[in-house]
């Protein structure tokens, strides 16, 4: 907190004046020096308190609208639902959660997202590399790649619902080359990959832009030197581009992970509704179902607490990664 920084003292200057003026009237009737000393000490008091007063709104907002609800949610997760509403039930909700195959599936899917993360980062990375290396039509690709990033997940989901329908265009195309139809969104082994794939398709534009910005800082002379030395494309990427872009890659990792964990709800809701067979559940979707559809808010609170802990761990890991890259600099 910037206690004692310049803004508070500027504030205190402007506030001391009215104090003195207000006191001025009484000061004239009494002994001058005594009154002005009182005014000065009041000013000092104010100056000492000012920083606290000024940060109070921010602190109160954080405590009242963030921390308190958070603690309340954790508190709720130890109470019961339905007939046991309001009773303390200890860890029952957590036991029920880890007993629930749907929640287990949701956690497994979080694991799957982490495993698929490198793919989600590699896609924009590779495409940005091609654009940077000026493949024919690179200007056109640059704008086309970014386009899906401006579509809302609901629209993207609806589009892919049509494309991936059992009697949809993709299966028709596959059928015309003799490959049997695949139930893209109806097969539990395939559906989650499709949803993640669509999510990557819809969001890689952002990563691409970040990568292109990173490329702008890359030293062109190094690339030229590598080419002069006869390095192949793969060697250029492996030994020049990747080391030069370490910080950018790490940043895209962090933001992509956050995006995957927090903004897949819309796609899931539109594309699969958590199905088939519960194979595309994520914790967020599970929480929504339990609270909104099953009327089990306490269980939903417990699931939220677990999701919060997961995000906390992920967030701290990412912070430490970012800090380490900062130090390398």
């Amino acid at each position: 907190m910037p206690v004692g920084g310049s803004p508070p003292s500027a504030g205190s200057v402007s506030t001391t004046e009215p104090f003195a003026a207000a006191d001025g009237r009484t000061v004239d009737d009494r002994s001058g020096p005594d009154g002005s000393r009182r005014a000065r000490s009041r000013a000092r008091d104010w100056e000492r308190l000012a920083p606290y007063v000024l940060v109070a709104p921010a602190v109160l907002i954080i405590v009242g609208l963030r921390l308190y609800p958070l603690l309340l949610g954790v508190n709720f997760s130890f109470t019961g639902d339905g007939d046991r509403n309001g009773e303390a039930v200890g860890l029952d909700n957590y036991l029920a959660l880890f007993d629930d195959p749907l929640f287990q599936q949701a956690l497994r899917n979080v694991g799957l997202l982490v495993v698929l993360l490198p793919v989600a980062v590699a896609v924009p990375g590779l495409l940005a590399t091609f654009i940077y290396l000026r493949v024919p039509g690179h200007r056109f690709f640059r704008s086309v790649y970014f386009f899906p990033a401006v579509l809302s997940p609901v629209i993207v989901g609806a589009i892919f619902n049509l494309l991936l329908a059992f009697d949809g265009p993709l299966n028709t195309v596959l059928g015309s080359v003799g490959v049997g139809p695949v139930d893209w969104l109806g097969d539990p082994d395939v559906a989650m990959f499709m949803v993640v794939g669509v999510h990557v398709w819809a969001t890689f534009g952002m990563g691409l832009v970040v990568f292109l910005a990173g490329f702008a800082t890359l030293d062109a002379a190094l690339l030229d030197a590598a080419r002069v030395d006869g390095a192949s494309l793969r060697q250029v990427i492996r030994h020049v581009i990747i080391p030069g872009l370490t910080r950018t890659i790490q940043f895209v990792f962090v933001t992509t992970m956050i995006g995957m964990l927090t903004s897949m709800f819309g796609l899931l809701y539109v594309m699969t509704s958590g199905g088939p067979e519960g194979s595309t559940y994520l914790p967020e979707y599970y929480i929504w179902i339990q609270q909104g559809q099953m009327n089990r808010p306490a269980l939903a609170s417990a699931a939220s607490t677990i999701l919060f802990l997961i995000m906390l761990v992920v967030g701290l890991l990412q912070l430490s990664i970012l800090r380490r890259t900062g130090r390398e600099d």
Binding site: P57, G64, Y68, P69, F76, T79, D81, N85, G86, S301
Partner: peptide, 24 residues
């Protein structure tokens, strides 16, 4: 402003201050 915020806060706390997840 501060009075307003405190009012909002107190109101918020009073609304949320119940001992169960689904207060009926």
């Amino acid at each position: 402003q501060r009075a307003l915020w405190s009012a909002v806060l107190v109101g918020g706390l009073a609304l949320a201050g119940c001992g169960s997840a689904s207060d009926s």
